[in-house]
Design a protein around this nucleic acid. Structure first.
Length: 491
RNA sequence: CGGGGUGUAGCACAGUUGGCUAGCGCGCUACGUUCGGGACGUAGAGGUCGGAAGUUCGAGUCUUCUCACCCCGACCA
């Protein structure tokens, strides 16, 4: 396992703060819970956004934008929703500052208190459904399939870079449907979109399943999730899709006239993924040499590094490098030619490895003579010499191969770290010694789930969709159970 | 909020029972030599030692107060 994952003190912060993603943190502790995402890190997010957005559009969704501020009264309309989020809301109480009377600095103007406080959105169901009330009157207005790219704030007591920050970037889909079946179908469709994205773009295998009641989204009737296993043996919820029933329609009085002329409440879904996905890529693929990016999401897929002693040599190399870059770009491959002369080639090799660039091409005097390049792949760190005339076929093939290989590596890892366990002491010792996914029987009660969590910190990550029925006894209570569920310690 | 810990250069740290002009490494600047796996030499810049008060001839070091941050727990995509 990668060193930086196991030794938090020494490597974790340095890795995140200085080397790869460059998350500068501010002085103030509250702001420290947020992230500064520097350009290279943001470029990864932009790749995630671009590919997800394409998948959303392909499934009929469109983008829109709703306000950051939610009147306090909105949040409280749906009882379970407000209960779930009340404890982690940032609240705006004033709208003005003024100079302090002692002349030192500025203070909040007590005269500028808001009649009704504003909540900075922790999620947008309420403000969006308040809008939908005005948009939906007839079955002809449905469905509404909207996605929003936004930031949200959840005032977490403890934060962790990428995985749980106080402010995070995400997308949230909010759809409105005429029937229960249609909404359920949408909920399933979107968890499948996420699973597809995780496996085929992020190269991380995920388990699709239903959340237990305890873990369900506040205000949902059903929550579907994808769960990924990180290299340190902990689970990461990588995406969720919620079937909201008519809860929000009732809370915001969103009714429509159906084909039969009858007034009905609208059926809803919501679904989202966040910058946590960047954390998933890091924790899922990185090794001791730094980040390993799946080629399909790498902002730079190929970097070309010249090795030269003087400017004449550089000119000769550049001629070839620029040609290679142009040819590859014609094939839709993102290429960076790094001809800066203020760092040595060795420095650049290491730097792009830390950044997780999938393929590195080095061109030096030897290559000039032989008409070759040295190609190194990030996943295996292996190098081979390639004839320049073959490069246009070689690169797309190797990018595909890296994509497939890191997925397989992650899948193998998950398989090696998934355990079917029937005895409580094995359950506890497995969690303590190696972590991983544990498939175990559960009696279906919230009390048992809660006790297991208290005693082991493990939670039910999901009730997987694709497990077969099987008679067994609950790992904790010994009561009869029909199927295994997925337990793990989670982020 | 409870338990533990740390504050000294941009980063990471050393600094002995109180004692000379507060140090090392990385990074940074200039010049030169280098450049096929984070190069090297020489010269240089950079500090209210978290803050306040006290003890003392003398405080980075001792005392008191205070502030900040980190880790563990309660919360969680």
């Amino acid at each position: 396992m990668a060193k930086f994952l196991t030794n938090r003190e020494e490597n974790y912060s340095q890795w995140y703060n200085d080397l790869v993603i460059k998350a500068d943190l501010a002085e103030n502790s509250a702001v420290r819970g947020c992230m500064v995402i520097k350009p290279y890190g943001y470029a990864i997010w932009e790749r995630i956004q671009a590919e997800l957005d394409r998948l959303f559009k392909a499934t009929g969704h469109v983008n829109a934008y709703f306000p950051l501020f939610i009147p306090k009264s909105f949040l409280s309309r749906e009882a379970a929703h407000v209960e779930g989020f009340a404890k982690e809301c940032a609240v705006v109480t004033h709208y003005r500052l003024k100079t302090d009377e002692t002349g030192k600095g500025i203070v909040v103007d007590p005269d500028a208190r808001l009649d009704e406080e504003l909540i900075i959105r922790p999620t947008s169901e309420t403000i969006i459904w308040n809008s939908y009330r005005n948009w939906i009157h007839s079955y002809r207005d449905l469905p509404i399939l909207i996605n929003q790219w936004a930031n949200v704030v959840r005032w977490e007591m403890r934060t962790r870079l990428f995985l749980r920050t106080a402010e995070f970037l995400w997308q949230e889909g909010h759809t409105a449907h005429a029937t229960r079946d249609e909404a359920l179908e949408e909920t399933e469709k979107m968890i499948n979109v996420y699973a597809n994205f995780a496996e085929n773009f992020m190269a991380l295998p995920v388990i699709k399943g239903r959340k237990s009641e305890n873990e369900r989204f506040a205000g949902a009737l059903d929550t579907f999730a994808i769960e990924a296993l990180m290299q340190d043996g902990k689970a990461l919820q990588a995406g969720t899709s919620h079937f909201l029933g008519q809860n929000f329609a009732k809370a915001f009085d969103v009714q429509f006239t159906d084909k039969a002329g009858k007034l009905e409440y609208v059926w809803a879904t919501s679904w989202g993924v966040s910058t946590r996905l960047m954390g998933a890529i890091i924790m899922g693929h990185a090794d001791n040499n730094g980040l390993v990016l799946p080629p399909k999401l790498a902002p730079i897929q190929v970097v070309i590094i010249p090795i030269f002693k003087n400017s004449d040599q550089l000119a000769l190399i550049s001629e070839k490098a620029v040609k290679i870059k142009a040819d590859l770009e014609k094939k839709g491959i993102t290429v960076k030619y790094d001809d800066r002369d203020n760092n040595t080639p060795g420095w650049k090799f290491t730097d792009y490895e830390l950044k997780g660039v999938p393929v590195r091409l080095a061109i030096g005097p030897r290559d000039l003579q032989n008409n070759t390049v040295e190609a190194a792949r990030r996943d295996t760190l292996s190098k081979e010499t390639v004839q320049i005339e073959n490069i246009n076929e070689y690169i797309p093939a190797i990018l595909d191969d890296i994509q497939a290989n890191i997925f397989k590596k992650a899948l193998d890892f998950r398989q090696q770290n998934t355990f079917h366990i029937d005895r409580w002491d094995d359950f506890v010792s497995t969690l303590d010694n190696q972590g991983g996914f544990i498939m175990a029987h559960w009696d279906g009660t919230a009390e048992t789930e809660e006790k297991i969590k208290e005693e082991t910190k493990a939670t039910i990550r999901c009730i997987p969709f694709n497990t077969a029925e099987e008679d067994g006894k609950c790992i904790y209570s010994g009561k009869p159970s029909k199927r295994r569920v997925l337990f793990a310690r989670a982020y």
